[in-house]
Design a protein around this nucleic acid. Structure first.
Lengths: 214, 214
DNA sequence: CAGTGTGAAAGTCTTCACAGCT
DNA sequence: AGCTGTGAAGACTTTCACACTG
């Protein structure tokens, strides 16, 4: 996500968006190391693991402070904590999924959000035949209740997993409801106000990128 | 995340990977326009639609030839065809999915591959309880048959949807079987030889990127 | 005119290489 | 010795702006 994808929202900060985009990658590597019982690492070790140069890792981190010790490297748990803080991940964020089709169902039952800062709070659809159905631990909610639910649960992030022709309309509803970040699985470009961040996931884009080299 | 180009694509061989990554985005927009019955477009119109500057679109396309007409813009169907050619999408590619869990199942039944150059040819798992089960139109295949299947069906692309701890092992098997491109859904960094292209999809990375701005 | 294709300029990002700390 | 943090250099990417064309 490469892909492709633009972030760039609120120009309030001096840290390049491309640097911010790498922090979660560092965080993920640190979490894995920590789970393995490791205590210290170095920019070089992370570089080997991630295929990013050590200089870049050091430079990226230097935007936020000095977290390492010369000669020793970085304390994994400390750096992990710092990144969690920088990325606002010290508390979980509620998440909603809109579209109870194949992708939406898979996403809603995806265990990968746990321990990484997110919690699926609800899943929505506009199809009366789906509303009320149980999907894993969730009951599909009518999309008409979206705005109420978002306010009630202080939801800031939504994942859009509806068919392409409906995605823009759903995005508009999200924005109106107060959503600030959209992870869009529909293969279309969404247009949203500046204060809303959109990230896109379209596997076909990645595949088509690879076929160029085949 | 970078590779040498194959074959003959009329223009020079040194197209930046970042440019290649945008071509599928252009292709997607053109397909949408074409489906809407439109005949011509301009770099400015595409720019508005995609949030990319018109100069960049023209510059990107200029790496591959001159496809537009001054005063008129681009013929949508011609440009669409050119991009399909450049991206090697004139014929469909067989695709395999490894991991018959939630994500794998969703991916295997995703209708979005059709008409965009790909066809899921098989889905694999190592769990004997899953092997043989029907998943949509597919029967789950034993991963031991991976290499045979890949050769038999000339598969070049694989999607890895197994749990993180298994992903590297599966990637190694893919490489050994002759896979050239991997779309990795597991939240780990895969290490593969230079001739294999890896693209990653981890929704949590996108979400964590957005929380920075919340 | 409207809109492309493109050198040149501007801007951004990455790498180098080393002083300085532990 | 080992490794960070960082200015400066280098590489890469985007934008500008305009000659040119249908």
């Amino acid at each position: 996500m490469d892909q492709q994808t633009s972030g760039e929202t609120s120009a309030d900060n001096t840290v390049p968006d491309i640097v911010v985009a790498r922090l979660p990658i560092y965080l993920r590597a640190l979490a894995t190391m920590q789970a393995g019982g490791k205590q210290y690492t170095s920019s070089q070790e992370m570089a080997d693991l991630l295929g990013i140069s050590s200089a870049q890792i050091r430079k990226d981190l230097s935007h936020f402070g000095e977290f390492g010790k010369q000669g020793t490297g970085y304390s994994i748990s400390e750096l992990h904590g710092r990144l969690r803080h920088i990325l606002n991940l010290e508390h979980d964020w509620n998440l909603i999924v809109i579209g109870a089709g194949h992708i939406g169902s898979a996403v809603a039952s995806y265990s990968g959000f746990e321990h990484r800062g997110f919690r699926v709070a609800g899943i929505f659809d506009n199809d009366p035949r789906k509303v009320g159905l149980s999907l894993g631990q969730f009951q599909v909610i009518d999309i008409r209740d979206l705005a109420f639910f978002v306010k009630q649960n202080q939801v800031k992030l939504a994942m859009i997993t509806v068919p392409a022709p409906y995605a823009q309309g759903v995005a508009d509803q999200c924005v109106a409801a107060g959503i600030h970040g959209i992870l869009n699985y529909a293969p279309v470009n969404l247009s949203v106000p500046d204060h809303v961040n959109v990230q896109n996931i379209d596997p076909v884009l990645h595949l088509q990128h690879m076929t160029y080299y085949l």
